[in-house]
């Protein structure tokens, strides 16, 4: 019953495939795109990783909106929590030895990796998004071992970290307007330090956002009996 082939979606899917692949085949085989301008621009501002330069500088507007989307989604997921679940809940009621040891061993490494990814972000592959994802995944691992409770999603510190990324980005992008330039037009002498600080804050914020997305929607687990 569930595996019955449906005709209309099948035709739609095949038509989409035909359209996209014929368009792709029609395109010229070689096209420089924007890469020359971008590589030149990144060299001009002394950022060796062109992708980081595009993300935070040339197309900073996209990233600003993306952080807003992430914030909004987190707020929406937080508001969809099951109100019946208590605050004393842990995701693993019984201490699973292997999971706990794994969490204890891996989480510090993940934090170091996240820090490394932010630091090398301007020269090598890496940056705020990757580091934030690693940080969030580490947080999720801690939640699965029972160290982090699902109720932390409502904790004010997590909320603060969550919102400070967007606020910092808005502050950084609006400051040039006050100085008489346009939005996101960082001045050259401050650019590096501003971008590094912004990336660090964004990493924490994205990590907190990933963790809250998981914690707020996490179900199951057991209530903690002992009072603390």
């Amino acid at each position: 019953m569930r595996d019955r082939i449906r005709v209309v979606p099948l035709v739609a899917a095949i038509a989409l495939f035909a359209i996209i692949s014929s368009t792709v085949l029609d395109l010229p085989r070689e096209s420089a795109g924007l890469s020359e301008e971008m590589i030149g621009g990144a060299a001009a501002i002394h950022v060796n990783n062109v992708v980081t330069a595009v993300l935070l500088d040339f197309r900073g507007y996209d990233t600003l909106l993306e952080i807003s989307v992430l914030m909004l989604a987190t707020v929406a997921v937080l508001s969809l929590r099951d109100p019946r679940l208590g605050t004393r809940r842990r995701l693993t009621g019984t201490a699973d030895l292997i999971l706990r040891s794994l969490g204890e061993a891996v989480t510090p490494i993940m934090m170091v990796v996240a820090g490394y990814l932010v630091w090398v972000g301007s020269t090598k592959p890496g940056g705020a998004f990757q580091a934030g994802a690693v940080l969030g995944a580490g947080g999720i691992l801690l939640a699965l071992t029972g160290w982090v409770r699902p109720s932390w999603a409502r904790h004010s510190v997590i909320r603060l970290v969550l919102s400070v990324g967007l606020l910092a980005f808005i502050a950084v992008s609006v400051t040039p307007i006050l100085a008489g330039r346009t939005l996101l037009d960082y001045s050259d002498d401050m650019r590096h330090i501003v971008l590094l600080i912004l990336e660090s804050i964004l990493t924490l914020s994205i990590g907190a956002s990933m963790l809250s997305l998981f914690l707020a929607s996490a179900s199951g687990g057991e209530e903690d009996e002992e009072a603390s």
Binding site: Q130, I140, A218
Partner: peptide, 20 residues
């Protein structure tokens, strides 16, 4: 860059969300 993000998010965080 995309590979790093995909490995951490696509395989890690999304997998955890789906399993939950």
């Amino acid at each position: 860059d995309v590979a790093l993000a995909e490995a951490a998010i696509g395989a890690g965080v999304t997998g955890a969300l789906l399993l939950d």
